[in-house]
Structures are given as structure tokens and as C-alpha cells.
Design a protein around this nucleic acid. Sequence first.
DNA 1: CTGTTAGCGCATTCAT
DNA 2: ATGAATGCGCTAACAG
Lengths: 341, 341
Amino acid sequence: MTRSRNSVTIRDVAKKAGVSVATVSRYLNHTGPVSHAVSERLKTVMTELNYVPHAAARNLATHKSFTVGLLLSDIGGDFFAPLLRGIEDTLAEHGYDLLISSTRRPQRWRGKQLPVGPHNTDGILGFADSLDETHLHQLAERHFPVVLIHRTPPADLLVPSVTVENKAAARAITSHLIEVHHRRRILFLQGPPEQEDSYWRETGYRQALSDHGLTLDPALVRRGDFEQQVAYEAILQAHREGVVFDAVFTGDDEAAVGTLAALQKLHLAVPEEISVVGFDDQRMAPYLTPPLTTVRAPTELVGHYAAQRLLELIQGGAVEELLTLLPTEIIIRRSCGCSPS
Amino acid sequence: MTRSRNSVTIRDVAKKAGVSVATVSRYLNHTGPVSHAVSERLKTVMTELNYVPHAAARNLATHKSFTVGLLLSDIGGDFFAPLLRGIEDTLAEHGYDLLISSTRRPQRWRGKQLPVGPHNTDGILGFADSLDETHLHQLAERHFPVVLIHRTPPADLLVPSVTVENKAAARAITSHLIEVHHRRRILFLQGPPEQEDSYWRETGYRQALSDHGLTLDPALVRRGDFEQQVAYEAILQAHREGVVFDAVFTGDDEAAVGTLAALQKLHLAVPEEISVVGFDDQRMAPYLTPPLTTVRAPTELVGHYAAQRLLELIQGGAVEELLTLLPTEIIIRRSCGCSPS
DNA sequence: CTGTTAGCGCATTCAT
DNA sequence: ATGAATGCGCTAACAG
């Protein structure tokens, strides 16, 4: 192969400093004693030569890359900015790099090899359904560090996961609608099928109903897909079908935007005629008209803990707790009917 | 060193398929003829063994990593989600991976080696001031592929850059305030110092003023830092000082949020008494009260082109155009005083 | 405290 | 169309 580029190698600094490569390596990694004199010499030589160890060579020799992979379903969503920050901050603190792969079609990697995995990272973070069970099992077999975000592992797999408390909050916010605002016919907008968050939120919603002796009208549960447009259509469709409702729990804030728009188009006043509540407390929630009552999910913290757990796995080989469930908090604004200051 | 983990190597598949590693490599990379029979055999063996080439080994041998680095100043901002999507989508299309490094203090890497660079990537994308001149020069010397985002290179460096048209749009939106809404005392909120976008927006603002024979009152130019809180204080402070103004060009949408809040606190009606316009058209812009008139910056496209240019550099070694200036577009909503449908 | 050397997993000449 | 051998830059024994 043609002689490599201008890159300076460990051999160049060894030669210029008059020592062996082993000594340079020891100096670099604090992996053995190096005399003070040599240390000083190496330091200057290295800055003179502007030497930076080649990552691939180091990885090959050590079988560690100090980078973790992140599998995402849609990097462009508002939801991900805080998540990414939580992850990146935590990894950076520990000297790890972040390799990102995103896709808007979660099926994109079915059958193929994942873009991140044992071949290029020390562990991976999988958001929601971005990681299918087949791959999950393969990784587990090889004991490759994986932690799941906003998704729990299949029952037979001991993979740590970090997500937020959905059920209790959904139950509480639904109860708020019932107790404080005397709503009785609360429409619920489901997220995408198989979405775990959606499942638990719906469960909480149903519990609140039964807590208060309300029976659930199946016509009140509809698909919103956590998307503005879908939610918008769902509300319009419900209205068209003559379904009456006095409140809507939109499943997430994204769907709340669509719901609010649909209600406005229908000339249904929020919150006077219809109460609306969301989930997530995304960035735009306080700016909606009216300001959205919702549940705050600590997304940045989710990222933090996910990274934390993964690092534990990578470094310790085991993790203290398998399920990290972060607390959520109801944020009362005006769309439910309250009038906070 | 202790025998490596359970990872299956090229040698394992070679052995199992009864061929040499060279043949496997040729098959893998389409880098030489391989008989049909052998191809078939390799294919099945590789899936049986679940073989994935080790990235580091490959990188070491080829001096290519097929990954690009991204230097960001704050990954958590709303601004970055679309940027990331544009970048990631484009890279993925071409089989490249994305290595992300972010910091909220741009000075974090001063004097130190960058977290991404020739040692672990094939090229890097530098957002705004995340890449200082020292590093830029070092990289340029080594002819390492770099493209700048929302920042132009120092005059002596031929580094491609992609950003958006700021000046003309700022001039146009300011002119709109003057011509359509008859505003005469337009307050301008600057971004952080050294911020290029802010500089050009201010330039456009000043041009519009002089275009219409308006002289600039220095008391009308203040620091908003592209941050809600700072903008909020700036408006309050201006009011406290008795500065009169009938409009504010907030520099960016983030500052517009703070401005709107401050104006509301001051009981100054928007847009009746004060017109407000922003820049960026961030996600929340249409939901503000009133909906924000602003300039739409094609942020996702910026990401796309930046990635595109970098790939050209990496693959071709040269890039067609040094400066990619993406067009912006005025979005009229209600905060300026218009009443679009 | 320091040097020599054998791999890490793969791509790539050069033979055959 | 295929195999044997060499080296990419670095770490980690091992010997001194």
C-alpha cells in the first residue's frame, strides 16, 4: 500500500524523542512508569509534531472504541433535542463519543446489520422501536452492552431500560379533568401502535375513568399517532360521527397541537366547551392557545440516565437497576380550564 | 494479550468457507473477481456466523472511516433538530456515519485537541463558533476536509461554508415594518457578539433604515443574545430608560419569545402598539401570541448542503462552490400588524 | 524505568 | 479466480 499521508505516528514521536514506542504509549495511557525527564520531552515533542493517536489503531489493539451508538427513530423531532443533550453531556463527561443513526422508518434496519454495534462502538442506546427484537437478541447473545430508551425489553431479556412514569401521570391528569372540571366524556388519542408510552397513558386514562365510576365509551378512544395532522383529522372525524365529548387527552403534545387546531376550526371553545390536555411538555406547550395543561417528562434526564446506565454496563459489566423510571409532573396551564397566574 | 472475545473475524468466515481471507475481502469490497460459487458460499457462511467486519481494523488498513464529525455549540437548542436531520439524512444516504460533539461553552476545546478530527473521521462539520481559528488552520494545513456551518472562514482559508441569506431578508422584513406598518422607531436586538448571523441581520436592518431616510438611534440597538431571558430583560431595560419604540426586530425567534413576554408585562399591545418580528421561523413561531412574523431559514437544507459539500471534499478532494448561501423567505403572520388568513 | 516484539482484523500487493 | 504475505498504528506482554 502506498505510504500513508502526512499523519504523524507514535513512531515519529518516539524517534524524535529518542525513546521507544512503548514508552510513548505508556506516557500516553499512564499505563506504566515514565521518568519525569522523558515525560517532559515527550510532551513538547508531541505538541511540536501535533501528534494525535490514531483512533482506529488504538481501537484495534484494545478492543475498545470509547464511543457509543445511538439508534433513533426521528432525529428531527422536537422531542429529541433535550434527549440528545442529556446523552451527549453525560458521555462527554466520561470521555465517550456519540455515534448517531436515525431513521424515519423504524423498519429500515430489519434484516440488515445495524449501523452501530459491536463492530464500531462499545455499546448502544436504542430509542423506542428503533431496535427490533431480532437485533436485540443477537446483541444480548454476544453480551453487548445495550440500554433501551422509552421502551422496556422483552420479558426474556435482561436489558436495562430508562423511561418515564406514564401511567400514574395519565391517571392523575385524567382525574383532574374529572374532579376539577367535571368532565365526563373524555376523548383519548392513542399514539402509534406498539408505542409503549401510549399504552401506559391509555391504561392510566382508563383507570382514572373507572376510579370515578365512569364507563368507557369505545368511540372515545381514537388514533392520534402522536402527530399533529393525524390528531387533527381524528378530532374532525369524531365530530363528524356525532361523537360528543367535553375533553380530550391527546396522548402527547404534538397531537395536542392538531387537536387545538381542529377544535378551533369546529368553533368549539377551549377550555370553555372542551378541556384539552397533553403529555410531554414540549417546548411549544406554553405558547399554544390556550397554554397547554400537560405532563412534564424529564427528557433530558432520560438521556442522562440512559447514558449513565450504558456506561455502567460498559465499564462494570453490570448495572444496578434494570428499570429506571423517571417521575413526571403535571403542569397546569389553561387548556384544561384552570386559570393559573 | 488475552485471546479476543467471541467476535467472529474474517479469518473465521474464510476458514468455514474454505477460502482465503483475501477472497473474503474481495467479496466484501467488490474489489476483485470472485467466482459465483464462492460468492454464494460466502454469503451463507457470513449470515450463519453473523459476521460484521470490524470497523477499526478496516479503518486502519484503508485510512478511511466513513464517518464525519460534527462540532456543535449546543445540541439541545430547538434550532439543531432540523439541522441534524438534514445532516444525518444526507450522510446516511451515502453510507457515512455521524460522530457528534457538542459543548455549551465554545471555548471548551481551545488549546486541546478536538474530539473529532483526522484521527477518527474523514472530515468534519463545524457549526458557527464551535471551531476556533487555531484548529481551523491546523486542519487546513493538513488538507483535512472541513466545512463550516453558519460561519464563513477567515479570509486566508479556502474552506467551504454553508449558511443562509441574512442581510437581504433582514432588510426586507425591516422595510415591511416601515412601509406597510409605518413604523419609525424599530428596536433591534443583537445576537451574541461575533455571531455572524447577527452581524448580517443588523446590517440589513441598518440598510433598510437608511433606504427610507431614517436615521438610526443608537439607543434602539441592544443585546438580546438570541436568548429569551436576555431579550426579556433588554426590552424591560429599554422601557425603563424611557426609550420609545414602535417595533422590535428581535434578531431571532428565541429572543422574540422573550420580547413578547416583556411587552405583555409592560401592557404594550402587539401588534397594535408595537410590531414584533423575528428570524428563523422556529417550531414555536406560529404558536406565539400573536403568531410571529419572521424569516424562514431553511435549516434542514443547511444541514443537507453542508453534508453534501463535505462529502464532495472527502470524495473528490475539491468542492465546486466555496460559499453556499441558502435563500430565506419572509413569513407574514400577525405580530407585525398584518392579518393573514 | 525502558526497549523488543507480537499481534489486533482487515486490505492489498504479488504470485500462481 | 485465488492464496500467501506484508503492513496499517497502536497496546501489551515480556525481558532487561
